[in-house]
Design a protein around this nucleic acid. Structure first.
Lengths: 338, 338
DNA sequence: GCCTGGCACTCAACCGAGCCGAGTGCCAAT
DNA sequence: ATTGGCACTCGGCTCGGTTGAGTGCCAGGC
């Protein structure tokens, strides 16, 4: 087991390295932190920490840098979540208020988060299946062509075009619209498949085909993976790190463009509380030198989606976690109001 | 005026430089192209081209590279638009078919364009004001709270929440919905402000406040600059160029994140036909070493929005232009069908 | 047993010199 | 107008030497 002081040394190394981006040596450490011991002692501690795999040296005769395992220990045991300053809180509120619709909320959130953390921000749209049905609308665009519009309590709107097998009368349409709504409004989208199961049976024979078509489109829209959307921002912040660029930045940008990958990544995060995935803990290859800080957000107590940031493993974890948490809370509030 | 051969030399320089990314010298030129003259002659031509400002040398004793002016001449006079191969055409069609809604169409388009050109793709959503009204829906979420949903002929859907000054009865709502639709469906959104001007007058005194509120929200939604949306993709392709990265890539990424800038850029492009803006022709500072190839697309003969790519001035113009044009055509077709 | 000062060693990063070669400009000859 | 010849330039590369931060180890002290 590691002694108290060795943990302190690790904390100091992480903090210094995050600040300077340069490997930190024993002498510099004793100067910048009051550890109360000499460089030689620190060297011994460092050797021990290296044996345990918490730190490493890029080359012999260089300082130490934390390993993924070192950051993990730091995040779990040595660091808390740094609360935001009150000007920052006010800035968040000002920035987020005045959004006109959900797209706007999400857009502002991603910009805000990117600016606050100076890293790449990722915001997932509220999941359909985790939201509640506010309204289902059916519009006749042509005799045999409908548009289905789903509206959630979080303000998300999805629409689909439907080609009907047969023309569908205006009265049938009104009928279907009314029955559909009375059966699903206020319920969770996840339950919709079950709720509408027997709906076609109550219609005239000639309309059943169309009703089934409508329902099958509705169900398709709710399929996981398809129904998730996300927005990213702040990619310019990637250029702030490691000057060995093309190599570092390339795979990250590529990974960020694959929304499926990101969604999976966010999906792996715990539903409640904050999740930090460090370096190789991320399954995707392009992201093995980055960390992901993610948290769920929602209009109520339950998370309807996740948001977070992607940055180098060498990031300011307490500050980033604080910003992510604060933004998630405010977004939740905004959504609850709408 | 430049002789025929000198133009030929310029074309050769552009082609070689685009291919190799290295300054091209007189000797290499004569080897790779059958110009029928000796390197010395080419050197004279190069000196002339340099005097005219079409090419430049990075340092003394280096080869020449085209200037923005050189590319301009190349694009205007020396190069055509390279049509896509038929496998490429088929790939486009396959990729674009099977999109389920407008978001999907736009998303696929941006990925397609990025992949095809290996550059950064930018796709603008069909402009509201240039589209036609397919339907306007008003939903009561609460007694004094409505949701306005606009649907265009291109499949774009916009929604807004409305807080009413007073409760609004179901019959009044149905009334407003009906009158609103009968007055705007099939008309261009740009004309809507005028069309709805006198609508409040025909309502009972007590409902006029709400009707005006609804209309003002409707009009706000149609304000230019606000109503434009766009999607970008393929940013990872930026890493393929110039190994002097952080400096080159940073401002470009930043510019790409400022959608307002991009919208303005696209807005400057001609409505019909293809527009190529080279290097310093782009007003925005971050984009002075990039070129933008943009073209309008639409479901009919009129452009409802633009799409294009952003890449280094040193790009394959004929190929890029071919891809951009082809994609725009197919997207137009897809939109017309929906 | 833990801490400390001292010491020899390592090695990346930083010059500066020198070479190399692609490429140029100029000129005289065709 | 075109060409071959020639002297010149200069960025990029390699090589050797120096520097200094940092390490590991050890012997002595608390």
């Amino acid at each position: 087991m590691l002694s108290e002081r060795r943990l302190e040394v690790l904390r100091a190394i992480v903090q210094d390295y995050v600040g300077t981006e340069e490997p930190v040596g024993s002498k510099a450490l004793t100067q910048r932190h009051q550890l109360g011991v000499s460089p030689a002692t620190v060297r011994n501690d460092m050797a021990a920490l290296e044996d345990e795999g918490f730190i490493a040296q890029p080359h012999t005769s260089a300082g130490r840098i934390p390993t993924d395992k070192g950051y993990r220990l730091f995040v779990d045991k040595l660091a808390g979540v740094k609360p935001l300053s009150s000007p920052e809180r006010r800035a968040i509120q000002n920035f987020l208020d005045g959004a006109v619709d959900l797209d706007d909320v999400v857009g502002r959130t991603v910009r805000l988060l990117a600016q606050l953390t100076r890293q790449v921000a990722v915001v997932q749209y509220p999941s359909l299946t985790r939201s509640t049905v506010r309204h289902v609308e059916l519009l006749a665009l042509a005799p045999a062509r409908l548009m289905l519009v789903l509206i959630t309590d979080t303000g998300r709107v999805e629409q689909r075009l439907i080609d009907c097998p047969a023309p569908f009368g205006e009265t049938s349409l009104a009928d279907l619209r009314a029955r559909l709504n009375s059966c699903v409004v206020g319920r969770r989208f996840a339950d919709v498949p079950q709720l509408v199961q027997e709906l076609p049976d109550s219609f005239e024979q000639e309309d059943r085909g169309t009703v089934s078509t409508v329902l099958s489109v509705l169900l398709e829209t709710l399929v996981e993976e398809t129904e998730e959307r996300l927005v990213i921002g702040g990619t310019a912040n990637l250029t702030r790190f490691g000057h060995d660029f093309p190599l570092t930045i390339r795979p990250v940008l590529e990974a960020l463009e694959e929304h499926v990958v990101l969604l999976k990544l966010l999906g792996e995060a715990k539903d409640s509380g904050m999740t930090v995935r460090i370096g190789h803990e991320n399954a995707h290859e392009g992201l093995t030198s980055t960390s992901v800080v993610a948290v769920g957000y929602g209009s109520g107590d339950e998370a309807v989606a996740k948001l977070g940031v992607v940055g180098p493993t060498r990031m300011d974890y307490p500050g980033t976690m604080g910003a992510v948490r604060a933004v998630a809370r405010y977004v939740g509030q905004i959504l609850a109001e709408s």
